[in-house]
Design a protein around this nucleic acid. Structure first.
Lengths: 125, 125
DNA sequence: CTTGACCTTAAACATAGGTTCAAACCTTAT
DNA sequence: ATAAGGTTTGAACCTATGTTTAAGGTCAAG
């Protein structure tokens, strides 16, 4: 898939995809004979994941740390396991943080619901 | 309270407080005879609330638009709840996605462990 | 009355996360 | 073969969220 196809499929701009590549957030694309970037279909899923995580306030650096899934690579078994372990730890910690956010949002909502009944309103400053 | 006192109490910088005022995130402070900003004690609560909301992934604009107070001060409940509900849905979906990634990493690790002579792995470096 | 710790402002600087632009090249359809 | 439209690069530009700096004014203690 060319960059425009991926962009359309993931609903992001092409400039954003190039930006992510420059920044090492996504792996560098393979290039066709013409120099065009050529993407595997599953980059779409990664781009969606990035969008989702950003919407929750994760930085691109944080997101890059939990990414795994695009681009095949031959590495030593030990290196691979070390890398996977690192990614695993990062994703576990991201899940914990996201869960914490979820709980905090739930508390805030409960608190707000409770005080809505009292309807104590303050000037809008 | 002077700006330094508030800053210390809320654990934010004075420059940040002035920045929030410039941007209309917090109301303009009263001024003493000397021109110094003079704050009511409860600005501390607002500053803490801003910090908390930022931690949940809200932008300053979102925070300013939906002036949700803290503790006994409640404003614009319906809007606040709608926004929080949206964030909540996003975080739930994010957790599901992250869990899926975690499981895929775990399978990959298990596979690798099981057949240690094969070092072909999917990686992002 | 001097010293040091505060306060004031405006403006410059910083970092993240992108977008836009120019100039050139490639592809596809007519 | 030409026009429309997609792709390449690098550099400039933009918004959000602050921090830092320069050039002063104020205050409380010694």
């Amino acid at each position: 898939m060319k960059i425009g196809d991926i962009a359309k499929a993931a609903d992001v701009t092409t400039s954003r995809i190039r930006f992510y590549e420059r920044k090492g957030i996504i792996p560098p694309a393979d290039r066709g004979k013409n120099g065009y970037r050529d993407y595997p279909e599953d980059l779409v899923a990664l781009l969606r994941f990035i969008e989702q995580a950003q919407g929750l306030g994760f930085t691109l650096r944080e997101i890059a740390d939990v990414e795994i899934g695009t681009g095949e690579h031959i590495v030593s078994c030990t290196d691979a396991l070390a890398l996977l372990a690192k990614k695993h730890a990062a994703v576990v910690s991201m899940i914990a943080e996201a869960n914490d956010r979820k709980h905090r949002i739930e508390s805030l909502m409960a608190e707000l619901e409770a005080s809505r009944r009292k309807a104590k309103v303050v000037a809008t400053d």
